[in-house]
């Protein structure tokens, strides 16, 4: 006998897994996809920012990512791979944005208003230099650095995400950090 699944029209998003929400969105449950967007928008923004180095570009890329995610709803297979899928989409969107806006200087963010304006200006300046250095990295290094520091993934998670051995991930991260240091003019 087949057990029927009851799909509520307003899913309780806080208790549902990503797979469940994707399944509910496919079934037309109101609010399911919106709940996914709310749940993952911050992590997507973080990842895109670390790849692109600009708040406005990160916002564009993150929005494109979540719109693109919606296209996966009809054919999504719930196998617990949702975060990996979302990160793959995000990095592809970042890459496309870099390609289409190659001449955009990544360091265009103004410092945020803060309690300590001087510290905030210094912080913004460091981020600007870092973003410029990151933008000069080859894509394969930029991708793993973004996954490590923008998504806070372990090396094994990065390896699973990009489909490469963990040793390759490790060497790309440290090669990438070395290139970053050189560009930033940090002595070795």
């Amino acid at each position: 006998m087949t057990k029927l699944e009851v799909i509520p029209l307003r899913p309780d998003s806080t208790e549902r897994s990503d797979d469940d929400l994707m399944r509910l969105a496919r079934a037309g449950a109101a609010g399911a996809f919106e709940a996914l967007v709310r749940r993952h928008q911050t992590s997507t923004l973080r990842l895109c920012y670390r790849y692109l180095g600009s708040t406005s570009l990160a916002q564009d890329a993150a929005q494109n990512t979540l719109v693109e995610l919606y296209r996966y709803v009809p054919r999504y297979e719930p196998r617990g791979q949702f975060p990996a899928l979302l990160r793959r989409i995000a990095l592809n969107q970042c890459r496309m944005l870099v390609r289409s806006k190659r001449r955009v200087d990544p360091g265009v963010d103004a410092p945020s208003p803060a309690e300590d304006p001087e510290a905030e200006i210094l912080r913004a300046e460091r981020q600007r230099e870092l973003s410029r250095a990151l933008s000069k990295l080859p894509e394969r290094h930029r991708r793993v650095i973004a996954l490590r520091f923008g998504a806070d993934l372990t090396y094994q998670e990065i390896a699973d995400n990009i489909g490469r051995p963990i040793g390759t991930v490790r060497s790309r991260i440290f090669d990438g950090l070395k290139k970053l240091r050189r560009t930033l003019g940090v002595e070795s």
Binding site: L45, R46, T55, Q59, Q63, R123, L130, R181, V186
Partner: peptide, 29 residues
């Protein structure tokens, strides 16, 4: 200095994290 570089790599502007993408995403969908 290496630790500071790592901190910067993890750092994200606070106003970026205040971004609400929901309305924009749903409008485009």
């Amino acid at each position: 200095e290496t630790r500071a570089l790592f901190d910067d790599l993890f750092d994200v502007p606070p106003r970026l994290l205040e971004t609400d993408l929901v309305a924009g995403v749903l409008a485009r969908i």
